[in-house]
Amino acid sequence: MHVIYGGTFDPVHHGHLRLAVELKERLGVAALSLVPCHIPPHRDDPGATSDDRLALLRLAIDGEDGLAVDERELRRGGASYTAETLRQLRATLGDEEPLVMVVGTDAFAGFDRWRDWQAIPELAHIVVIARPGVELPPEGVPAGLIRARGCRSVAELHQAPCGRILPLELPLLDISATGIRERIAAGRSPRYLLPDRVWQEIRARRLYRASQGGEGGKAVKQPLINS
């Protein structure tokens, strides 16, 4: 079974990484691929370039054998559409390999506004991670899809190549990339919210208006353009 976990990773932090490890173990796979998007179609442009975000992600997972980076959306350029990514993967994996994409309930709530969303369940299974405080409106399309395609166990994902939706609750760290960017822009330290090597590299590259000076990596106090 091939599992992908996509996002902007702007920047990658411990919440992303711990969720990836929990997913790998819960789904019973040897590896999980993190897929950084190039241009997110449903939110503002990232605060760091694709190359910078990729470099930070590589640093974050260095030495963790069960996590890998899939660069296909960055190489493809343009807006990053999930259906297109899944078609590329399906062409490589063949028709019989179970393919799983991971999404949080906050993102899945707008699933029917995604480009070519109807094709996605025909290409992959969907694991929907519960987010605290986020409920799907029962009359909406996403909740209807779970009722129609929902399954109750990971074993069911292994039994078919695509088409099933598994709601899943996992231990989550309450960390947001937005909060980290805001801390850096305000001159506050984000240490222990993300790997030290990632924070050091953010300072070295002066990302999110961070400077290299000071133990805390104090930032230039300017407002963020992208939240």
Rank of each mutant, 00 (worst) to 15 (best):
G144I: 04
V102A: 08
L173T: 03
A119E: 15
R164N: 09
V100G: 02
A107D: 02
W114F: 11
M101I: 14
P142I: 07
R181Y: 01
P121V: 08
A148I: 05
R113Q: 15
T178G: 00
A119N: 05
L86R: 10
T92I: 08
L89P: 14
Q159W: 03
Q159T: 10
T105V: 00
P171F: 04
P121Y: 10
G133A: 07
G110A: 11
V154K: 10
G133S: 13
L136S: 05
G140Y: 06
R149E: 11
I129R: 05
E139N: 11
L89T: 06
R149H: 12
G94C: 03
T85M: 14
D116Y: 01
G133K: 10
A130S: 08
I180D: 00
R152P: 01
I184T: 02
I180S: 00
R87N: 04
R164P: 00
A143V: 08
C162L: 02
C162S: 13
H158R: 13
E182M: 08
H125F: 04
G140A: 15
V134E: 03
E156V: 08
F108K: 06
L157W: 06
L99G: 09
S176P: 13
T82S: 15
P142D: 02
L145G: 06
L89A: 13
V103P: 05
E97Q: 13
E139G: 09
P171H: 10
G140N: 02
